[in-house]
Design a protein around this nucleic acid. Sequence first.
RNA 1: UGGGGUGUCGCCAAGCGGCAAGGCACCAGGUUUUGAUCCUGGCAUUCGGAGGUUCGAAUCCUCCCACCCCAGCCA
Length: 553
Amino acid sequence: MDDTPASNFLQTIISEDLASGRVATVVTRFPPEPNGFLHIGHAKSISVNFGLAEANGGRCNLRFDDTNPEKESTVFTEAIEADVRWLGYQWDGEVRYASSYFQQFYDWAVHLVEQGNAYVCDLNADEAREYRGTLTEPGRNSPYRERSVAENLDLLARMKAGEFAEGARVLRAKIDMRSPNINMRDPILYRIRKAAHHQTGTEWSIYPTYDFAHGQEDAIEGVTHSICTLEFEDHRPLYDWFLDHLPVPSRPRQYEFGRLNPSYTVTSKRKLKQLVDEGVVGGWDDPRMPTISGMRRRGYPAAAIRRFCDMIGTTRSDGVVDVAMLEFAIREDLNENAARGMCVLNPLKVVLTDYPEGKVETLGAPRHPNRADLGERELPFTREIYIDADDFREEANKKYKRLVLGSRVRLRNAYVIEADEVIRNERGDITEIRAHTIADTLGENPADGVKPRGVIHWVSVSEGRTAEVRLYERLFNHASPDRGDNAFLDHINPESLSVVQQAWIEPALADAVPEQQFQFEREGYFVADRYDHSVEKPVFNKTIGLRDTWVDG
RNA sequence: UGGGGUGUCGCCAAGCGGCAAGGCACCAGGUUUUGAUCCUGGCAUUCGGAGGUUCGAAUCCUCCCACCCCAGCCA
């Protein structure tokens, strides 16, 4: 895709490391905790980590940071692996698990204790908080801080053996309770958890914290550049402290970049879960969700998501990225690759009075206006057709480029027609339009020089098929729904989903395969639903509308 | 009032002492059997603010301001 690595501060660092010989081969890693579904923010992290490795001839690992058994499960590890693969990336070797290093971590904890750099603390959570101090006040030493090495070793072994209740004791590093960086105030290394772990079962009753695990995981795997988001910046001194005090096999370095915050959406796991739990959306992969599986179901091409991640760059500043940029990337990809078809969402029947009853004329139409390689499709034309009700007016000004009584419009890929008459029901609603074709207008302009006002799409009444079409709009009607705590639910767009039960599609569209993407001409991009679509019962999801610059109605 | 960060066009973002890239959005034209695409042009005398250094500053120095992160036995 890209021949030159994107210019950003991380690439600059890597280039220097490679040039100086500090690093021979770049190794990065994408380290999600398997406690939820991946979202657009993770896509950015994936793009950064895999992208940097790829651009520099290195490797990238997929590693599950599974240090907290209570919230994790294999349904998430499986979903995450699928998402990463779908995005188009392949990790180096086997999937890694922090949990497979548990014994090593424990040995290192013993090492720390032996060196006098860690101790078992009996303070409970509330007491520990109190001793920790505040942002502006230093903390105080735990009364258990000066236990002997022997006692600490004994207590740690018994913690591991499961002798103590959850919360009864923890293992802490002995650093500095007066440090202005709260992470350095004797951070917790191990806590007691009796929960079963999805990988290690009941083997362990103590589990390492993120801080005591992450840098060592990187060191074990030979990760050279450990890239995370800005909120971990304060943890870097601790990350380095462990590497300084442990006999680790390599020396990784941590770098941080600014998290991706797209407008009109939320990315906090808690809030996404709330949307699912409260039934605001249909599930984690609802097409309106910013999850990778949601975007996939919505029809966003993986390549467009990757392109978007490249477009926005990688920096240390935090800001809100306009979703218009994501939308641009999606349209750019789909415009290039999606086959065209016609679908009438709001049907209005047109009878071509001069056209023979029962005649079916098979017209050919290109699948793509400027990609001959995609070939043609057959397009049956008949006396009765459907057009969209929005494409007809009894009268209109010159700017209305659709069908108007007494004037002409081109039927896309077919004839120019002229509307003659409107048929109404008892209530006065228009139920049908009578029109006639203009002779010899297949691929030709009318011989009399009277040009049609515009071009509209259509579907044959007898040859067309019906489909369910799900129309999606933004889930939120506020650019920053994430602000505030629960206020985000007040910004839900009540019209984020509307379903057209019986739209009319041209027959060629019924052959669609799940996840196949199309442009329904003049309407937008649509995808055959990954789960619900079938040839017998076609179901399409609206991915995104066409860019619309029509100003006057 | 502790520590760590960030501030360049509406949004994202290059730039790293030599005279403000690019993309998105927007606006104006052209082409067009999709009001799409495509093409052309426009869009920061100014870089959070104020001082200073220098022939020359978005880039260096000083002070100030705004915003973000940190007080889970979460990651």
